[in-house]
Amino acid sequence: MNVAEVLPLAFLGAVLGLDVVSFPQAMISRPIVASTLAGSLAGSATSGLLAGALLELFALEMLAVGASRYPEWGTASVVGGAMFAGMQPANWAGALPVSIAAALLTAWLGGWSMYLLRRGNGVLARQRLQELGAGSRSAVLGLQVTGLTADFIRGGLVTLLATLAFAPAAQYAGREWAFGTARSEALVLALAVATAGAAGWRLFHAAPGARWLFLGGAAAGSALAALR
């Protein structure tokens, strides 16, 4: 990948990374959206959506609750979606598993970068505690603008570094992949569906009867799929 190809992706990663927590939290950073957008930048929105749907299943596992540490799916989905869309014309068997693996790794890297950013924000806030205690408007605005800018840069850097790091490995793995396309995709799918299914089973425990509705929905889905 050359600079002209990577920079738009890094910008998209910066915007979507910012959306995860800082601004505007409209969930354009969800995998099904982010990966499709990245796929369209890389030449195939449909391929981006395919990767995004799988990543969305993984993302259902983790609730982005308050101070907890969780994977950051905005930048991860840009990396995964663009990688899969970029590998598609060659129809490599390894395209999907390699792209999803790159996205999962980026999600953890992104989560770790968010943790560092929040610690950095904390250091800055501590340094300006006296001004905040005096009701300084400029201190409040300064902290907000610095935090937002830093998060934007964080998202861009994570996307840039992950794309540059994983692209050559993905190209190699995609080329040399010996396991069949269908079986490779089935394995990725089984892992994604299992992750979402287990997450749903735990999540639906909170509402009385929801687990039965989940099983009923699965039965209806199976019947509908069989009829199609």
Partner: peptide
């Protein structure tokens, strides 16, 4: 109510996705 609706749709989605991909 939202969780119940998500449960039905979640159950529906998983087998449909398996068929869509494979």
């Amino acid at each position: 109510h939202i969780t119940r609706a998500a449960a039905v749709l979640g159950g529906l989605a998983l087998p449909l996705l398996l068929h869509r991909f494979l």
